[in-house]
Simulated scan of single mutants.
Amino acid sequence: MKEVIAIIRPNKANATKESLAVLGFPSLHACKVVGRGKQKGILGEVSFPVSPELEKQEGGMKYVPKRMISLMVDDQDVSLVVAVITKINRTGQIGDGRIFVCPVENVVRIRTGEKGKTAI
């Protein structure tokens, strides 16, 4: 099993979630995150008020609002999930995001006690 973590533009989150659901990956976690890479700002892309600590500073934004999507997938599904996330989120501009693929040692469903692949 693998965990696929994608840091993407806020305006691409819904399309990403919908595309993954259509392909059979409806279970995921999504949250608002802030961080910073090399780009230093996408203020014109956000559709919500930006708090003062995120506002543009000299040379860019202090932190950039993004969305983080995380899902657990079988090893054989990783390339499909990565390809879908990449296709939906690639604009060719700075700030398209990153995808991280991490190993998952085990999964346990709390309600039933199922483990491994069946617990996903």
Rank of each mutant, 00 (worst) to 15 (best):
S51W: 04
Y63L: 13
E45S: 09
P103I: 09
T118V: 13
G95S: 09
S70F: 08
A6C: 02
V33N: 03
L80Y: 01
S70A: 12
M1L: 12
V81G: 04
F25H: 06
R111Y: 13
F100R: 08
P49W: 02
R109W: 01
V50Y: 00
G24Y: 02
I110Q: 06
K115M: 13
E45F: 00
V81L: 06
E105S: 12
G60K: 02
V82Q: 11
G59T: 04
S47C: 02
I94N: 11
L28Y: 14
L71G: 11
E18A: 11
E58W: 13
G35E: 07
M68G: 01
K38G: 13
G59W: 09
H29K: 10
T86K: 11
E105K: 14
I5R: 11
V107I: 11
T86W: 04
A21K: 15
P65D: 05
L80R: 09
A13S: 11
K17F: 03
V82E: 11
V81T: 04
A83C: 06
G92A: 08
K62E: 07
K12V: 00
K40P: 03
K40M: 14
K32S: 14
K12C: 02
T16V: 06
G92M: 05
E105C: 03
V50T: 03
G35A: 12
N106I: 03
L43H: 05
P49T: 02
L28Q: 10
S47K: 12
I88P: 00
F100Y: 15
V104H: 01
R90L: 12
Y63A: 10
H29G: 11
P10G: 07
G41V: 04
I8N: 05
P49C: 01
I8H: 01
R111C: 06
N14R: 13
K115P: 01
V34F: 13
M72H: 09
G116K: 00
A30L: 14
